[in-house]
Every structure is written in C-alpha cells, then in structure tokens.
Amino acid sequence: MAGHDDEEAGVAAGSASAVTINVAGTRGPSFGAPLVEYVLRLGDDRLVLGHRLSEWTGHGPILEEDIALSNMALDLVGQANMFLGLAGELEGKGRDADALAFFREGVQYRNALIVELPRGDFGFTMARQFLFDVYSVLLLDALASCAHEQLAAIAAKSLKECKYHLRHSSEWVVRLGDGTEESHARVQQSLNELWRYTGELFAHDEIDAAVAALGVTVDAGALQSRWDNMVQDVLQRATLSVPTDVVMTMGGRRGRHTEHLGHMLAVMQSVARAHPGATW
C-alpha cells in the first residue's frame, strides 16, 4: 500500500517522526491487489455511468427515450453488481457489491473521469454514451476470452447488453449530428468537451501489466485503434468532426476525480448510509 500513492506518501513524510500514522486510514486511497483494482475499474465505470443514466428516469425528452435510458441504466448497474461482487470476492475481506458501492469514498472509486461528468443535455448524454459504448464493447469482447473464468463470464454476459446500448447511442449520434443546426451544434460541442477524457480509457498502467501476467490480456494499443476507427466512422456519418490537439485529462483510475463524483456519491449513497444494513 505505502509508496503506491504519491499523496499518501507525502502526508506520511510530513507527520510526527515517532509514530507513523496512516492518515488516509480506511478513508484513503488504499490500493489492493492488481486484479481487485482492475475489476473495481470495470465495476465503477458501470456503476457511475449507470447512475448518471438513471438521473434521466422521469426526465427523458420523449417517453421511449426515458424508457431506453432507464433500461440502459439498469443493465449497467446490474453489470456493476456482478463486477463489484467479483471484486469483493477476490479481495476476500467480506465486502459485497453493496458495501463497495455505498461505503467507499470518492478517492476509492476507480472509474474513468468521463463517466462521472454531469449528464448535461440529451446530446451530451448520448455523445458520452456512444464514446463509452464503443470502448466497452471492444473491451468486453477482449475480456470474454481472458484466462480468468469468472471475469470472462461476466464480460461475455455484459457484452450482449452493451451491443444494444452501442446500437442505440450510435444511431442517436448520427440522428443528432446529421439533424438540425441546433442538434448538430450541441452534439459537436459535447464531443469537444468530452474528448479530453477519452485518453484515460486507453492508458496502460502497472495494473494492466500485472493482470496481463495473470492472463487478463487486453492490447490497449489495438483497442484504441479499433475504437478510433469505429468512432470516426460513426462521426463521419453524423457529419461531426473529431476534435484534434486535445490534452488528455486523467486520474480517475487512481482515485483522483473531478469535483462532480463527490456530489453524485452523496446522493447515491445517502440512503444506504442513513440506514446501514437495512433490508427489505
């Protein structure tokens, strides 16, 4: 754990010399075994995006879309439940999916920043969904044949659902991009805002390297070039342009999030924390 995170190490070095205090304690960005970290990333991406989509329930622009967004939210939260359940099992400290979802702090979340951004307008929601869905379908397709049996099974199951999401979001990107002047301008603006968060999806770090040694191999470079091709193909049909010269913003995979995640978690976790252990 120590030495894994710069900030934590910095605090410890500045504290009183006689006693070493783990300032972060249970609320800090503690890092677990690589596979646990890796599966948390998969689970947290889906939990956070699923929650963002669920914010549309009752607020969709048309009834069919309200239903579609809620259905996709349900799929993603269901997938998060499977991934977080596995992460808890692998961790071996008795935490189940609910404990991981509702009783971790923002710094302990491992989702990519792109999924935690506020939902914005419908165009922003669909542009984000599309960029994530392409990534998700390609990644899950690769993981479905990885050496870790449980992880592969969850990936294969999730992949089927994400294909439906991708078809839906890509059709909307084309419809909005190639739609009215207003819809085109809004979805292009959303893409411009979102683009700097896409690099994080393909950043390869020591966690990826460590799980690759366990047989969970995803070629990040190949993943990115396939993603580029699919995204460009759809954006072209949508008459939208791919943003260029963008400096990528990262940090979510290591627990350094935007200010938006904390607000979202405060809402998402409030009931579970007000009534810990409640069942119905």
């Binding site: 879309e65 239903i67 579609a68 349900l74 839906h168």
Partner: peptide, 13 residues
C-alpha cells in the same frame, strides 16, 4: 421498430 428498449429489459417496441 419503435425502440429497442421497452417496458422490461427483455423487450423491444
């Protein structure tokens, strides 16, 4: 096809 998402996860409209 009206929508690939319907009244439950398993249905399209």
């Amino acid at each position: 096809l009206q929508s690939e998402f319907g009244s439950t996860a398993c249905k399209a409209i």
